[in-house]
Design a protein around this nucleic acid. Structure first.
Lengths: 334, 334
DNA sequence: CTGAAAGCGCTTACAG
DNA sequence: CTGAAAGCGCTTACAG
């Protein structure tokens, strides 16, 4: 068996409570006592049993993170940063992939996964606010992303609409007039895709360029679907001089398809994305995109969640945090 | 408070043990009793407390996964698959990023992280076999990758040497004679880089092409360092007609640098990588690489670890599993 | 087939 | 400042 607090107490000649006091940095311990306990801990190689501590205290020092798929670069890069930020505060992150499946998203809100964590960072893709509110329980919950923007929930997001407008304006200023959009969800005006579409439309409007629904191609947010969407557009004879992928992998897939078909990028068609994943910088041509400030998002998400857990944030309403963004102009759309 | 087993027992009019029996699929329960318990569980919305179960049973139903950085595409794609495979067996995966830091790698072997998990999938990058053996403890441990190949440890890996040789031979057969290698570790002949280098050298030898140390550029395995390595090679006037990146992100970074400098790929210089991350297929030009069979690696890693945990694998020696590979010939090196 | 009891390793009022 | 005791919610021999 592993060394327990009891063993330490015996070795140091003190009671269990005193060992616990030392472990939990209780203030009023005689220095000599503290030293004896610490010596015993070092000598025996004692390591606290987190499971026992959790059972008793109800705290696990773990945070839950739910999104659709860890193999998507944006989520992988975000998860990596979230873990590092959490680690600086003594927390681990337990990841759950929902696969954009409603039942998985809902079950992440309770049951084992919820028990195992002190708070949840949640990027729902399909369930709605009411369903979440009905099952969210009492532990802190912070929404990541923009599927749900609701005063009942804390939320960390970025200026999607503004950023998409800035990107579109950049394309317009470069003389592009027929900007295809890939990755839209038909008729949606909320959610990440919807907000970015709003930005696109506002920029067009401001420039006096009419919106053409024929330029909008729905697609799941992957490389292969981005490529297929461009292929579909070309097959149906739609003319365009730019492609705005609603995220980077869509744009990268689209660019691949264009290049394969001998279309010059950016000569014939400019391509732009959204997310600024590491790959965007090293694509050929490198990808013009929006950097959402992932470091800031990670840092502030963890801070907000830990403030809720620690009771330092007590607002009854949801707190909404919005990170800044930066337009990264690269070769694919100078 | 949450609903406990006690509440269920009371509602069903049975003892705690009977509820536990139902929960753990104990065989000999009277159907009527079982039904009553299940009804009570459903009615009360009871959910087992995993922490309490863990404390008592010593099992956590979590697996540990340690590698350097989740934002590296290979690790992200592998982690995603490992989680899915683990999930099919009722396990979760807790990820720890070591940042290739020796002290983090070592501390993942014991302490909280180890307690929290029933077994460990470990990709060490810097610590050696003896250091691991000294601290590995008694819980199952499966090595992933080839930094350590030691009969004391279970290991899941792939035919690195053979695959690198096959790739090099492909380049040679296409007429390339000066194949630069990016990502080597000076003088190393074990570990992933070392094994792939061995394969490269064997293929050269077999083709009667002399090895030229001037063509070997050390680099960490990232895009930016791959780009910098190629830039360094060109700056020092080394001539080459192909680049073998020891993994895909190195190759992709290298390709980016070549294209920026107006080098035609594959016309002037062929480029090949290793890993077959999703991005390789959609790069422009698409990347010739080795597919290590990530699905197979994920599936077999989880199987082996769970067999150890369940006591179904009892070999005293380490079990070594080697997955197959496939050469993916694409545009960057036809 | 089912029940009563002990105990996993901690934390936390409650005393002193 | 420190100790003795209860208890978090389970599982597991041990009886019967």
């Amino acid at each position: 068996m592993a060394v327990t607090m009891n063993d330490v107490a015996r070795a140091a000649g003190v009671s269990l409570k005193t060992v616990s006091n030392v472990l939990n940095d209780y203030e009023f311990i005689r220095p000599a006592t503290k030293q004896r306990v610490q010596d015993a801990i070092a000598e025996l190689g004692y390591e606290a049993n987190l499971t026992a501590r959790s059972l008793r205290s109800g705290k696990t020092s773990m945070l839950g993170l739910v999104f659709s798929d860890l193999s998507a670069p944006y989520y992988a890069e975000l998860a990596s940063r979230l873990m590092k930020a959490a680690s600086r505060h003594g927390y681990r992150v337990l990841v759950e992939q929902s696969g954009a499946d409603a039942s998985v998203e809902l079950s992440a809100l309770h049951g084992t996964f919820r028990q195992l964590t002190d708070g949840l960072l949640f990027t729902p893709l399909v369930v709605d606010a009411d369903a979440i509110a009905a099952r969210a329980g009492t532990k802190p919950l912070v929404m990541l992303g923009e599927h749900i923007i609701d005063p009942r929930f804390d939320l960390v997001t970025m200026k999607n609409e503004e950023a998409a407008a800035a990107l579109t304006t950049h394309l317009l200023q470069a003389g592009r007039r027929r900007i295809a959009v890939i990755g839209a969800n038909a008729g949606e005006s909320t959610g990440t895709a919807g907000l970015r579409m709003n930005g696109y439309r506002k920029a067009l409007e401001q420039a006096g360029v009419p919106f053409d629904a024929g330029l909008v191609a729905p697609a799941q947010w992957r490389r292969d679907t981005g490529a297929a969407a461009v292929a579909g557009l070309m097959a149906s004879g739609v003319q365009f001089d730019a492609v705005f992928g609603l995220n980077d992998v869509l744009a990268l897939g689209a660019m691949h398809e264009l290049l394969i078909r001998g279309v010059n990028v950016p000569g014939d068609v400019a391509v732009a994305g959204f997310d600024d994943i590491d790959e965007a910088r090293f694509a050929s041509p490198s990808l013009t995109t929006i950097s959402p400030g992932m470091d800031e998002i990670a840092e502030r998400s963890i801070s907000l969640l830990l403030d809720r857990i620690g009771g330092r944030e007590t607002s009854g309403q949801g707190v909404h945090v919005e990170s800044g963004f930066e337009l990264k102009i690269r070769e694919s759309a100078p």
